[in-house]
């Protein structure tokens, strides 16, 4: 499997990781990347590296910042919960919307670089 179908699969797994199968979909995405990292064409490699990179960076962004909020604000504070809920919802939604744009580009057979953090993972 090469080109567009592979790119679409990468973006679909990225979105599945965020929405319906967190963790499992990420492992499948990693496996897909590992399998095709040497034989994928530029389009597929672009989407594979972007989705894997942004998944890792996005996950870190969520977990690390939430941990910082919890450490700074304490577990027994309503304000900490409020910040955690708002932060998680905004970051998670943003990652989903980026994935939507990535999926659409993949379906159109176009390259895509995720905004802000995607530049770190150019194939």
């Amino acid at each position: 499997m090469r080109g567009k179908p592979l790119a679409i699969r990468a973006e679909a797994l990225y979105l599945a990781n965020l929405m319906i199968a967190p963790g499992l979909a990420f492992l499948l995405l990693l496996a897909l990347y590992w399998k095709h990292r040497h034989d994928a064409d530029p389009l597929a490699l672009n989407h594979l590296s972007q989705t894997v990179g942004v998944s890792v960076a996005g996950g870190t962004l969520i977990v690390a910042v939430l941990a910082a909020f919890l450490l700074a604000g304490g577990m027994e504070s309503g304000y900490t919960l409020m910040v955690v809920v708002l932060y998680f919802t905004l970051v998670h939604s943003s990652l989903i919307f980026m994935g939507v744009f990535g999926l659409i580009r993949a379906m159109a057979g176009e390259h895509y670089v995720y905004p802000l953090i995607g530049r770190l993972f150019r194939a």
């Binding site: 309503g78 304000y79 919960l81 409020m82 809920v85 708002l86 919802t89």
Partner: peptide, 18 residues
């Protein structure tokens, strides 16, 4: 929406969860 969510989370905490 964000302001109401903030208000709602605090409301849950102070009025129901604690």
């Amino acid at each position: 929406t964000l302001f109401l969510t903030g208000a709602g989370v605090l409301q849950v905490w102070m009025q129901r969860y604690t």
